[in-house]
Design a protein around this nucleic acid. Structure first.
Length: 570
RNA sequence: CGGUGAGUGGCGCAGCUUGGUAGCGCACUUGGUUUGGGUCCAAGGGGUCGUAGGUUCAAAUCCUAUCUCACCGACCA
């Protein structure tokens, strides 16, 4: 490609609303342009990268035995009603009507459509297992689109769905997908980690996320420093932090006027926060009569609640919601700051670590009064233990090896074992070997194709611009001639090299603009072409050109005679 | 959804307080100059000042409504 015939569209200035580096560089390097909040045009350079990523994903999916299909972006509401997600899914699901006033959705994911497809096409166990995938545009009406293409509303995703008769068979495909995902991210050259994950609204049992490690990531990932254990903080099991036993102190009421927060109380009573407990009141499960009871969650004072874990407790309502203070005051007779598990008339669920504290401090269920010297076995009539808190750096790893570290990650892939949630709701089954109708069990596997672009830039850039890994670079080689319009020699060498590289199938960007050298260097470095050939009069006298590697910064002189061989061998 | 801020040529911004009919830098066009790291000089093209309404002789500027966008928050007992 010649820059004079291309839409390079680089910019010197960074648009004001771009916050993270990948967003800034994608705008400046002319890869994307915003159309509306969370919606972007891909310019030629951006599209080249997107296609590169998609092709790697496609090759690895095919290699792993998945079969490519394509499903529509617009989906009938009927299917979503069948699965139950027409009601379950929140405002992220964009609902639209056609001219006949029939309901449709813009697909945020395709479980419904694929399940309906397979239900019609597959009727015998002999056709299983089946793993189909597509690379398609998705739409999720995000609360807050941000970071450019990293969290857009419309984005490109690879999603695969597998169908099986047995858990073992699902596990086999799941493992294959896990391996394929690792290959994909390795080929692209990302520093990534598979982590144990929550299944979220899609539902199901086993699940792993694949995270690219970057400070700008939106998820917290917990890692063991001594083993392979890695989990999203949403999911990472928090082991009990036990405290040494003490002789039971006397249960004492103390006045704590205006001391509402844990740090207030801890400072006021001069007691370490680890010896305090906080009691959070949440809504329980609504009964048949429409009454919603309250449930108390107890955590050690310095710990934080993990809502996803709490939601998994059978007594806690879904979706998780903190109780309103007015409701709490009406039912429990005191404000948030003075609640405690002692003598509480509602179910008490204690975090494992909170449940081991001897002689702790908690609210007395009476405004401006706390209790000291509280002991669970003696003072709290009835409670259950549960893993409720977020893990913290320095906690023991749940696999018993080492301690946890926490880093930020960008989720670029997610695989789930769905089980029969969709196949059951939508009656998707086959006749088994014994002639019985059996419901299929499913897996689903997603990769954020467009997000990978952003994540790659987060990990591969410097102050001059993007440093694309060769695997997904928009061009492999840049030809940068110095003052070509004034030198026939340079023009000849540059044109010849361009032709030769094209003939070899090398993706090359030939900067044939009548620009100053600095402009060309800056543009090629901003766009991030991995290999650059600089052609100048000076070196031509020795029959040489200069080679520059964008990633390593390495420079060397190359003889024109074996230039093409060198570049094709990279 | 709540809080804050912003909408002025393609991009980044000034002008608004104290109304008088729009300006700067980048980019773009033309000519010249320069040529191994974003040259310099000159001339030019391009804007219903987000939209609608109001006040006024006069509105980018004041008032009202509305739309859009961005950032922050949604862990607090």
């Amino acid at each position: 490609m010649r820059t004079s015939q291309y839409l390079l569209s680089t910019q010197k200035e960074t648009p004001a609303d771009a916050e993270v580096i990948s967003h800034q560089l994608m705008l400046r390097s002319g890869m994307i342009r915003k159309v509306a909040s969370g919606l972007y045009n891909y310019l030629p350079t951006g599209l080249r990268v997107l296609n590169k990523v998609a092709n790697i994903v496609r090759e690895e999916m095919n290699r792993a035995g998945a079969i490519e299909i394509l499903m529509p972006v617009v989906q009938p509401a009927d299917l979503w009603e069948e699965s139950g997600r027409w009601e379950e899914y929140g405002p992220e699901l964009l609902r639209i009507k056609d001219r006949h006033h029939r309901d449709f959705v813009l697909g945020p994911t395709h479980e419904e459509v694929v399940t309906a497809l397979v239900r019609n096409e597959v009727s015998s166990y002999k056709q299983l297992p089946l793993n189909v995938y597509q690379i398609q545009t998705k739409f999720r009406d995000e609360v807050r689109p941000r970071f450019g293409i990293m969290r857009g509303r419309e984005f490109t995703m690879k999603d695969a769905y597998s169908f099986h008769l047995s858990q073992e068979c699902l596990q086999t495909t799941y493992d294959k997908m896990y391996a394929a995902y690792c290959r994909i991210f390795e080929r692209i050259g990302l520093d990534f980690r598979p982590v144990i994950a929550d299944t979220g609204s899609i539902g199901g049992s086993a699940s792993h996320e694949f995270h690219v490690l970057a400070d700008s990531g939106e998820d917290d990932i917990a890692f063991s420093n001594a083993s392979d254990y890695a989990a999203n903080v949403e999911m990472a099991e928090a082991l009990a932090i036990t405290q040494p036993a003490e002789a039971e102190a006397e249960l004492t009421k103390v006045a704590t006027p205006e001391q509402r927060t844990i740090s207030d109380v801890s400072t006021f009573l001069n007691i370490p926060v680890e010896k305090t407990v906080k009691t959070l009141i949440v809504y329980g499960v609504t009964d048949e009569d429409g009454n919603t009871p309250l449930v108390a969650l107890v955590l050690r004072g310095d710990h934080t609640l993990n809502e996803i874990k709490a939601e998994k407790h059978p007594l806690v309502g879904t979706p998780f919601a903190m109780a309103d203070e007015t409701v709490v005051e009406a039912q429990l007779g005191c404000n948030f700051g003075s609640i405690g598990p002692v003598g509480l008339a509602i179910p008490v669920i204690a975090d494992r670590s909170a449940a081991t504290i001897p002689n702790f401090v908690c609210g007395a269920n009476e405004n401006d009064v706390h209790l000291t010297g509280v002991n669970w076995s003696r003072d709290v009539s009835e409670f259950t233990e549960f893993d409720l808190r977020n893990v913290e750096a320095g906690d023991k790893s749940p696999d018993g090896q080492g301690t946890l570290e926490i880093k930020r990650g960008i989720e670029v892939g997610h695989i789930f074992q769905l089980g029969d949630k969709y196949s059951k709701a939508m009656n998707c089954g086959v006749l088994s070997e014994t002639g019985k109708h059996e419901t299929l069990t499913m897996g689903c596997y997603g990769i954020g194709v467009s997000r990978i672009m952003a994540a790659t830039i987060e990990q591969n850039h410097d102050k001059y611009g993007i440093k694309w890994p060769d695997a997904i670079a928009p061009f492999k080689v840049a030809i940068i001639p110095m003052n070509m319009h004034k030198s026939h020699r340079i023009k000849e060498v540059a044109e010849q090299l361009y032709d030769d590289l094209l003939a070899q199938g090398v993706e090359v960007l030939f900067d044939d603009r009548k620009e100053r050298p600095g402009v060309m260097f800056n543009d090629m470095e901003l766009v991030g072409v991995p290999h650059a050939i600089v052609i100048g009069e000076r070196n031509l006298d020795n029959n040489e050109v200069e080679y520059k590697n964008r990633r390593t910064g390495e420079k060397s002189m190359l003889s024109i005679d074996n230039l093409v061989d060198f570049l094709t061998s990279l």
